[in-house]
Amino acid sequence: MIKFNFYGHSCFSLNTGKEIILVDPFFKENPLTDIKPKEISCDYILVSHAHFDHLGDAELIAKKNGAVIVAIPEVLALCSSIKKVQPMNIGGSLSFSFGWIRMTMAIHSSGVAGGLACGFVIKFKNGPTVYYSGDTALFSDMQIIGAKERIDYAILPIGDNFTMGNEDAARAVQFLKAHNVIPVHYNTWPVIKQDPKIFKQTAESIAAVKVHIVKPGESLDLSK
């Protein structure tokens, strides 16, 4: 079983029952959660880019848990007190205890000089393949990601202004040929206010996909 736990914005964890992968650990300034960084347990932390709402509390949580931070080198340089790190870069893949990760491109600013924003394809051993796009615009190479892997679950931003909005995110679902989608990165602040039901209606009308609207504090079993 892979359990998706949503903390609001783009912060979530994937729990295999043995390892916990925490993604874009934004807690302290996240208005959608009351959970404190000290309450979080994890083994790995994936960071898509260095904006405050994604790098978030990575360093603090990694110290508490002895977790490995996985990110591009420029982002890891901002976590200089952490010894357990795994640098990756766009297009590269690497095996981990839970499966493997490939780092994908994202069309977005990175929040650190010389850096790039990224996404992640996460393939779990004997489990689903999960694609998290990170903050991104729609880009045509999503079709390559979808052709290269069977995407069981895609986790995509829909907030607009900083990322894709509802319409472009629905087109991304088409490109990826994802079987299931979870929208994120919306309703954190007024500037990214969106109705996920509109995204659900749009995406399901143009693609063979099921959209799962997971509220902050809720979980979803990805093995079903």
Rank of each mutant, 00 (worst) to 15 (best):
residue 202 T to E: 14
residue 202 T to L: 15
residue 82 I to F: 12
residue 42 C to P: 09
residue 164 M to S: 13
residue 124 F to H: 10
residue 31 P to Q: 10
residue 168 D to S: 12
residue 144 I to C: 05
residue 187 N to L: 06
residue 29 E to D: 09
residue 96 F to E: 06
residue 215 K to N: 12
residue 129 T to A: 11
residue 41 S to T: 08
residue 96 F to M: 11
residue 32 L to K: 01
residue 182 I to A: 02
residue 52 F to A: 12
residue 187 N to A: 04
residue 46 L to T: 03
residue 162 F to P: 00
residue 181 V to I: 08
residue 157 P to A: 11
residue 207 A to P: 03
residue 29 E to S: 04
residue 113 A to L: 11
residue 3 K to E: 09
residue 179 H to E: 09
residue 158 I to N: 01
residue 171 R to M: 15
residue 117 A to V: 05
residue 4 F to Y: 09
residue 134 G to T: 06
residue 200 K to L: 14
residue 59 E to G: 04
residue 200 K to Q: 15
residue 188 T to W: 05
residue 44 Y to I: 05
residue 63 K to N: 09
residue 220 L to D: 04
residue 193 K to D: 13
residue 144 I to K: 09
residue 137 A to C: 11
residue 61 I to M: 01
residue 187 N to F: 06
residue 77 A to E: 14
residue 192 I to K: 07
residue 59 E to F: 03
residue 165 G to T: 06
residue 18 K to L: 08
residue 46 L to S: 02
residue 27 F to I: 00
residue 108 H to E: 07
residue 69 I to W: 01
residue 133 S to T: 15
residue 69 I to A: 00
residue 79 C to L: 08
residue 49 H to D: 01
residue 200 K to A: 15
residue 68 V to Q: 05
residue 69 I to Q: 03
residue 10 S to G: 04
residue 109 S to M: 08
residue 223 S to I: 05
residue 188 T to P: 02
residue 207 A to K: 01
residue 194 Q to I: 12
residue 75 V to S: 03
residue 199 F to Y: 12
residue 53 D to W: 02
residue 164 M to H: 07
residue 67 A to Y: 10
residue 71 A to M: 12
residue 202 T to K: 14
residue 138 L to K: 14
residue 103 M to T: 14
residue 133 S to I: 14
residue 27 F to H: 00
residue 29 E to H: 01
residue 7 Y to T: 08
residue 40 I to N: 04
residue 190 P to Y: 11
residue 85 V to K: 14
residue 91 G to F: 13
residue 137 A to H: 13
residue 172 A to W: 14
residue 121 V to R: 09
residue 194 Q to W: 00
residue 211 V to Y: 10
residue 160 D to I: 08
residue 28 K to G: 01
residue 106 A to W: 12
residue 137 A to G: 09
residue 135 D to R: 08
residue 198 I to N: 10
residue 171 R to L: 15
residue 49 H to C: 06
residue 224 K to Q: 13
residue 192 I to W: 07
residue 101 I to D: 03
